[in-house]
Structures are given as structure tokens and as C-alpha cells.
Nucleic acid binder design. Structure first.
Lengths: 157, 157
DNA sequence: GGATTAAATGTAACGTGTTAAGTAAATCAC
DNA sequence: GTGATTTACTTAACACGTTACATTTAATCC
């Protein structure tokens, strides 16, 4: 029995699996950035949170979660960790005591400012190597894919 | 060189973050597939493993890990779970007693055959909605990105 | 104003990602 | 063949992803 016994109807095997391909691409990109984060005991998620906090004097948890694409339960643990390390600070919002306003500490700012140049340099390196135009096209396609999938009401046709 | 813009672009904020964009794209795609897996208490990873085992009568752990892009420690736990549920079976390789050959059970096959059509239908739906050509282009670009990054010796400078 | 509902956040439980360390079997060295 | 190295896999420990549930405070309804 020759190897082409598998009727193509069996199931499209996942050489062409969108989730897997996106996963591998992400992992490949991450491998360029993670080492410099690891040096300072930061995960990718912690790094995103710190960067989000550089954008504003303070933010509540929901804003950070939205900005960083991290779910609230994960963020809750991440903030505890960063707070323990004195990289961020939390205070309850006086106007709405359900909210906790998070801000980055001077120590956190120093850490970001130390890592950011390396991170930026890696990004520029990737941009050069892959091509600025191509990278831009890729962003566009991914954005379109996301939009296409979000505006897709019924998942169960 | 001194492209010292104003403070607003202190650091390229992550609207244009490749890892985040890839993450969001993957999550958007996953949201289309996960519900039908959840119905049968399968994670995306468990599903990949089962599909990989449909491709051959048996496979050792390293092959599965490679095929599914799952690290061995994770796979080890996943196989324990699937074995407990009698969806896969493991036997030690007589030729090399370090290896454990994993195969899918009839029960596992039935589960895959039940889910596969729905999964395939979702995939076709996405292909239609996003466009076959565009999807193909996206695969190409992602493949090129991965290749570009893998063949990039020095990650530092 | 007191009860109800909604919103913001936290906790729990389980599965996975990831690095390091451990175990056992095969291979290599001599 | 004995010992060192390598290979295949597992375990441990910690962080994150995800869903469900709990908690506290705001907003809303009568």
C-alpha cells in the first residue's frame, strides 16, 4: 500500500494550520526579545504592562488588560508580582472604590528605560532584515484578518 | 541618526507590536475553533496531538512535540491526560526502551472523526470570508518571517 | 432609602509555556 | 566490558491563559 493511501478527505493536516503558523511566527519573534527581558526577570506580559504604564500617569486594571491583551485574572497576578518588586504601585480610586489605579514607580521607569533601547534595536533589526514594506504589509493583513474574524457573527454557520 | 522625536514617541508604543499583533490574530482565529473543542473537553493542544496521531499508526513523544509545536514537558502532561481518558495509548519501544510509542485509541479516533468536520467547516468559512488568495499570501509571509528570524544568527547586536 | 442589578476586581482550579534538574536507557570511548 | 556522554523523557517550579465563582462597590429601580 503506497503512502498515498490517505484519502485527502481524511482531514487537512496541519501543515496549513493558521493557529499553528501564527503561534510559530510569534514564538520566532519572541525569541528575539525574550533574552533581554529574562536578564531582568521580566516576562513578555510583565514587560507589556510596564510599557502600558509609561503611556499615562496611572491606569486602572481594565484599561491595562485591554491595552496589553491580557485577561483580568492573569493581570491580577502580574500586578501582584510587579507590586511586590516595587515596579508598580496601586492605590484605590477615591471616586470609585472598586477601581485600583496603577502607576509605574521610579524604579519601574528606570528598568523600562534600561531595556527599551535594546528592545527597540531588535525591532529595527527585524524591520531591516524582513523589509519595512513587507512588515507593514504583514501588519495590514493581520489587522484585516482580525477584523474579518471579529465581524463574523455566527461561528456555527 | 539623532531622530530624537518629541516625548510622545519616547518608545514606539505597541500599537505596532509584532508579538501582540500575532497574539491577537491567533486569539481571533482560535475563538472560531475553541468552542467546538470545549464541548468535548479538549484544549487546542490536545486536539493537535490527537490529529498528529491520526497521521501515523504511532509516534514517539519527540515526533509529536515537533509536529505540534509543543515542548516536551507540556506534551508529557498532555499525554498523561489523554491516556487517562483512554484517547491515546503508550507502549515502550522494544528497540529503544527510552522511547514510548504513542498511538490513538479507537475511542480517540471516534472523537476526532466527530469534531473534524466541524473544524474543517470553520476553516473553510474563514478561507471564504478572508479570501483564499489572501490567506495563501498570509501563510507565505508568515513563513518568510519565521525563516528570516530563524536564520538570524546574532540576536544581540 | 433599601433591595436589586451591574461593574471592577479578586480568587480558585486546571491546563499550558518554559527553564532547570532528574532518571533511565542507549551510545561512545578506551 | 566499564565509565562517560548523549538521548528521550519526566518532574518540579513558577508564570500565564482561561473559565467559573466570589467579593466589593456603584448605579438603578421602586
Amino acid at each position: 500500500m503506497s503512502s498515498d493511501r490517505k484519502s485527502s478527505s481524511e482531514l487537512r493536516e496541519f501543515d496549513r494550520s493558521l493557529p499553528m503558523t501564527l503561534l510559530k511566527a510569534r514564538e520566532a519573534v519572541m525569541r528575539k526579545f525574550l533574552p533581554s527581558l529574562r536578564e531582568h526577570d521580566l516576562s513578555a506580559q510583565q514587560w507589556r504592562v510596564l510599557r502600558a504604564l509609561m503611556e499615562a500617569p496611572h491606569r486602572d486594571a481594565s484599561e491595562i488588560a485591554e491595552r496589553c491583551a491580557i485577561l483580568l485574572p492573569s493581570l491580577s497576578r502580574i500586578l501582584q508580582n510587579l507590586e511586590r518588586r516595587a515596579l508598580v504601585r496601586r492605590k484605590t480610586d477615591r471616586k470609585d472604590q472598586r477601581r485600583s489605579l496603577v502607576s509605574i514607580t521610579p524604579k519601574g521607569v528606570r528598568l523600562v528605560e534600561k531595556i527599551a533601547p535594546i528592545s527597540e534595536e531588535r525591532y529595527q533589526h527585524i524591520t531591516q532584515k524582513f523589509g519595512e514594506q513587507r512588515l507593514s504589509d504583514l501588519y495590514d493583513m493581520l489587522g484585516q484578518l482580525i477584523e474579518c474574524l471579529e465581524n463574523d457573527e455566527g461561528d456555527s454557520s
